[in-house]
Design a protein around this nucleic acid. Structure first.
Lengths: 187, 187
DNA sequence: ACGGTCTGTTCATTAATACTGTACACTCGT
DNA sequence: ACGAGTGTACAGTATTAATGAACAGACCGT
C-alpha cells in the first residue's frame, strides 16, 4: 500500500475536521453535500490522500471557507485584547522608534510603531516579501513608496506591496505613531 | 477529452506563471526542479489540470512561496494611499455609524468605522466566518466578545476570530472610531 | 435483552485523471 | 542553416483519487 502521509495533508485534514465538527456536520452529511463518499472525507481528514484542488474546493465550499482558508489554518492564539499601555515591545533596527506588538494571532500580524522626531525605518527604503497596510495613528509622517514621497497625517492610510521599496520617517516636531498590519504566510 | 477548466485552476496557473517568470525560470527548469515534466507545468499554468496538494506544494516550494500564496493570489490594486478626508463610504446596516473603506487590495481588507454616541454594530452579537483585528482610533467603545464585555480606549486593540459572537457599541458621549482589518479570502 | 439508527474507520477494487513522452512551432544567436 | 533555447498540443499509461461494502462502537426507545 505504502500510503505516504505528508504534514500538509494532515494539517488540511485537521482543519477540515475542525470546521466540520464546528458546524455540527457528520462525515456523511459533509460527504453528501460535497458529493463525495464518506470514506473519502475520512481519508482526507486523516491525511491519507492528497486531494486535487477541485476536490478540496468542493469540500471547502460546504464548510463555508475558501480553499486558502483550509491551507493557511489560523494559529490558535485568537481572541486576545491588547491594552494601549500594555503592549509587548519588539526588538528593532529602527532609529528612534519603538515597535510594539498588537498580537500576531491567526492570519494577521500587527504592530504599532512610535517614531520619535527625526526617526526613520532605515537609511534607505527597504524592499521585502509580503504586503502591508499602514494607518497613521498620531502625528505627521513622510512615507516613501517607490519613487514618491507622501506626507501622511493622522487617519491617512496606505496599502502597498512590501516589494515596493518603502521608508517611514518622522520629520515633524512631535512623536508619530503608525499601525501596520500584514498577512502571515507562515507554513 | 472534456477537459474542464475551472476559474480557480486558471487563477493558480496565472500565479504560477507570474512567479516563475518573475524568477526568470523557464518551464523546463521549473519542471526539473520540482521533478515534473515540462508539459505538466504548462498544463498547470493553463488551468488544464487540477493538481493534487502534494504536486502543488512541490511547485510552490521551487517558486519560494507557500501553497497558500498560490491559492490566495494578491489582487492587483496595490500601492494606494487613502487620505483621511477622502475615503469611500460603504453601505452598512449599523445604526448610527459610518463605514469607510481603507482600501481592500492584496490580501488585506480594511475599514474605519465612525460610531456616533449610542450607535452599535447590531442588536445582538454577530458571528460569521473569518477573522478580524480592531484598533480603537478614537473615543471609548465597549466591545462584546463571546461572554465578555470589554471597555476599550484609544490605542487598545483586539484580535479575534469572527466566529466568536461580537458586538461594537459606543456608550460614550462622543463619536468613536475603530479601524478593522481582516484577511481576504474571496474567491 | 433486542433492534434500529446514528457515529466514524478500514481496505480492496476500480474508475478517473494526473502526469509523461514525443512531437510540434516558434524565436534567438552564431 | 543550424543548434539550442523557448512554450504548447495531444494521446497514452500508470498512478492514485475516490468508491462501496462491511466493520465496530455509541446511543436511543421498546
Amino acid at each position: 500500500m505504502d500510503t505516504t502521509i505528508t504534514t500538509r495533508q494532515l494539517q488540511i485534514g485537521e482543519e477540515v475536521r475542525r470546521l466540520r465538527t464546528g458546524l455540527g456536520l457528520s462525515v456523511r452529511t459533509l460527504a453528501a453535500r460535497a458529493e463525495f463518499s464518506p470514506s473519502f472525507i475520512s481519508q482526507v481528514e486523516h491525511g491519507q490522500v492528497s486531494p486535487s484542488i477541485a476536490s478540496l474546493e468542493r469540500i471547502a465550499a460546504v464548510l463555508g471557507v475558501t480553499i486558502a482558508g483550509l491551507l493557511a489554518p489560523a494559529t490558535e492564539k485568537l481572541d486576545a485584547i491588547t491594552r494601549a499601555g500594555d503592549r509587548r515591545r519588539l526588538a528593532s533596527s529602527w532609529s528612534k522608534a519603538r515597535i510594539e506588538d498588537l498580537g500576531a494571532s491567526g492570519r494577521l500580524e500587527a504592530v504599532i510603531i512610535t517614531i520619535a522626531p527625526g526617526g526613520r525605518s532605515g537609511k534607505t527604503p527597504t524592499s521585502h516579501a509580503g504586503e502591508e497596510l499602514g494607518i497613521v495613528f498620531e502625528g505627521d509622517v513622510s512615507f516613501t513608496l517607490g519613487e514618491d514621497v507622501h506626507r501622511l497625517k493622522r487617519g491617512d492610510s496606505v496599502s502597498f506591496s512590501s516589494e515596493t521599496p518603502h521608508l517611514w520617517e518622522n520629520h515633524g516636531p512631535e512623536a508619530a505613531q503608525i499601525a501596520i498590519v500584514s498577512p502571515r504566510f507562515t507554513h
